[in-house]
């Protein structure tokens, strides 16, 4: 599992330019899914048909994990060859000064810095630039064009054998859990796993995926903030204490019956869990539940420290608990009947 996470978490895949990570995921699901395809926005769908002998009125469960991460896009190249950028997703300009990024199309590295007269705590994006070590605009244009996107360029690392650190653990860890699910699933319903794009800019990918698949039930896998660091916001979750079962986030309140069902499954299978009330967290669940006539949607997340920074921290115990609870939930007899 750690190797799978590591292979996905080092890839740069900013919102709107996810092709590299989508390719990597595709290579891993093609052997285990019955059908694999992408759509206009770039979402990857991996479909597992029901086990033999299932009835004709077969139901569909959608499991979604977004593949993108926050990043930056080039809006201008100046005469000296410095790139001007704008954010893709939730990044604070001040947090980017001195960070390394990799461009998706050309693979080149760059470092983000701020104009000399920018105030340290009040930097805005118009003052940031990316240095790609060229001498003028012409040279820069050979490597980068306006619209190119970049994301953090840091390898995943282990703080301890059970604690991971990386720039895109949100949400490659969930992608890895979903890939494992496809490999092992043998279920009496149709399972559609969507590796969704453009979550960071407002869950755009999942909007069209939800419309396309129109499932009977949906589960969104993501990362969620903890409240266990010095003077953190007052949140319930602590790293290493179990998978987070979503009750509320910035976009939705999960139906109480769906939350209760997940709790019962977790307790029965003795899987550590915590309840997730994160009023400021955004996930694909909110946009998925409003597709067509409405889709019953719930969510599991990995409690994560330092979200939206290059040093996101997760505990493997929580990741394992997410995988186990997902499997147990899908095996539950009452899945469509809560």
């Amino acid at each position: 599992m750690k190797d799978l996470i590591k292979s996905l978490a080092g890839v740069s895949a900013p919102a709107g330019a996810e092709q590299e990570v989508i390719r990597a995921i595709r290579a891993r699901v093609e052997g285990v899914a019955d059908e694999v395809y992408t759509d206009t926005l770039g979402n990857l769908y991996a479909i597992k048909k029901p086990a033999a002998g299932a009835s004709s009125s077969v139901k569909t469960v959608l499991v979604a994990a977004h593949a993108d991460e926050p990043g930056v896009t080039v809006v201008d190249i100046d005469d000296e060859g410095f790139l001007r950028i704008a954010p893709l997703g939730h990044l604070a300009a001040a947090d980017l000064v001195g960070r390394r990024v990799r461009f998706v199309r050309s693979k080149i590295l760059g470092v983000i810095y701020a104009e000399g007269d920018a105030k340290r705590n009040a930097v805005d994006f118009s003052q940031l630039f990316v240095d790609i070590a060229v001498s003028d605009q012409e040279e820069a244009r050979k490597l980068v064009q306006i619209g190119d996107a970049a994301a953090f360029a840091y390898e995943m690392q282990e703080v301890t054998p059970r604690v991971l650190l990386g720039h895109a653990l949100d949400n490659r860890v969930a992608c890895a859990v979903a890939i494992n699910l496809l490999a092992s699933a043998n279920v009496p319903f149709q399972l559609v796993v969507v590796f969704s794009v453009q979550q960071q800019v407002g869950s755009r990918g999942i909007q069209v995926a939800g419309y396309r698949i129109n499932p009977d039930l949906a589960m969104v896998l993501d990362a969620t903030p903890t409240g266990d660091t010095p003077k953190a916001k007052r949140l319930n979750l602590t790293m290493g204490s179990g998978v987070a079962i979503k009750a509320l986030d910035a976009g939705m309140a999960v139906a109480p019956a769906l939350v209760q069902h997940l709790i019962e499954v977790a307790e029965k299978a003795q899987i550590p869990y915590q309840i997730d009330v994160s009023p400021e967290a955004h996930t694909d669940a909110a946009n998925l539940q409003i597709a067509r006539s409405g889709i019953p949607t719930c969510g599991l997340s990995v409690p994560t420290r330092y979200l939206d920074t290059p040093s996101q921290m997760m505990h493997m115990d929580d990741v394992d608990a997410m995988g186990k609870l997902l499997q147990a939930w899908m095996a539950s007899e009452r899945l469509f009947d809560v």
């Binding site: 976009g251 939705m252 309140a253 067509r292 006539s293 409405g294």
Partner: peptide, 16 residues
């Protein structure tokens, strides 16, 4: 349902 958190009940009911 759920008007206070995004008017989503009316939207989905209308689609149906």
């Amino acid at each position: 349902a759920q008007e206070e958190i995004g008017a989503i009940g009316a939207m989905t009911a209308a689609f149906r």
